[in-house]
Design a protein around this nucleic acid. Structure first.
Lengths: 149, 149
DNA sequence: ATACTTGCAAAATCTTTGCCTCCGT
DNA sequence: ACGGAGGCAAAGATTTTGCAAGTAT
């Protein structure tokens, strides 16, 4: 919730800047994404937006999410299942570890890996412009962890 | 070409083992994949297979590729464009760097990153079962490299 | 009032599946 | 001959788009 307003504010700036209109639908979708701490797919964003306003169509969610993505304030991931999963861009980049049994997604950041990726790219004659990394794993032991799904 | 026969042979073993039939289509598709050093999508596999035998349908390519994938002798990647890209499983795992300008795919392997991925997973309480890593980059300078695409 | 947005339905992609025929064993 | 395999077309799943109507500025 801390950076939620920041997300919405930044989006409003971008809208104003590009002559795009700040509509109720966009505001709602921005709010949904700003408050999402997980990685919802489009259907899920649609579902959550519809809790606030059930007159938002799936197309609009697709179109709005595309806007956010193009504005760089939203990132798209793919975690194995076919559809795209979205998450707002954070100041600190991070990667994901997916629990192959539960589907749970854990975020992490490893400076050393980040550094090595730059290095590998340079060694191959490239300037790194981005990367995707997902680790898939199975929980070790049964540490007490009450949450299901 | 070195391991091409190995791929086909292994597939024939798997077929025999599971009571699956060694058909002309499968043989052809296996041959195409065995000889592909790049990362063709299904359409491309279909196209290449049709050069050898134009009576292979797209469905069959999909079905056969799925078989290969399930048998573990073929890997599926996604390099940003929506469709799946395939490559036969190599003895040595490797990752990919995608040239964001040309789409060219460069394979590489970095032991240190591999090691760190294991470490990160374990640190988070997981046993690493797999991973996906793609670097996206832009070529530095114009080093003499004769091949275009 | 203008032109950006939306909803809806249709279309576009990529992939899977039903069904009947065909072929490997 | 039996049952797996293939071709074809239809169906699925996800995402995009055309168009007429609605709305922010």
């Amino acid at each position: 919730m801390v950076k939620a307003n920041e997300f919405t504010k930044r989006f409003e700036e971008i809208c104003a800047q590009k002559g795009m209109r700040m509509t109720g639908q966009r505001r709602t979708i921005a709010r949904v994404l700003a408050n999402s701490k997980d990685h919802p797919d489009i259907e899920e964003v649609h579902r959550r937006a519809n809790v606030i306003d059930d007159r938002i169509s799936l197309s609009t969610v697709y179109r709005t999410v595309r806007l956010f993505k193009e504005a760089g304030i939203l990132e798209r991931h793919e975690f194995g299942d076919g559809r795209g999963r979205y998450e707002r861009t954070q100041s600190e980049h991070h990667d994901h570890l997916i629990d192959v049994d539960s589907g749970e997604v854990i975020e992490f950041r490893d400076e050393e890996i980040e550094r090595l990726q730059q290095l590998v790219a340079r060694r191959l004659g490239y300037e790194l412009t981005g990367h995707r990394m997902e680790l898939y794993g199975r929980r070790l032991r049964a540490e007490p962890k009450p949450d299901g799904e």
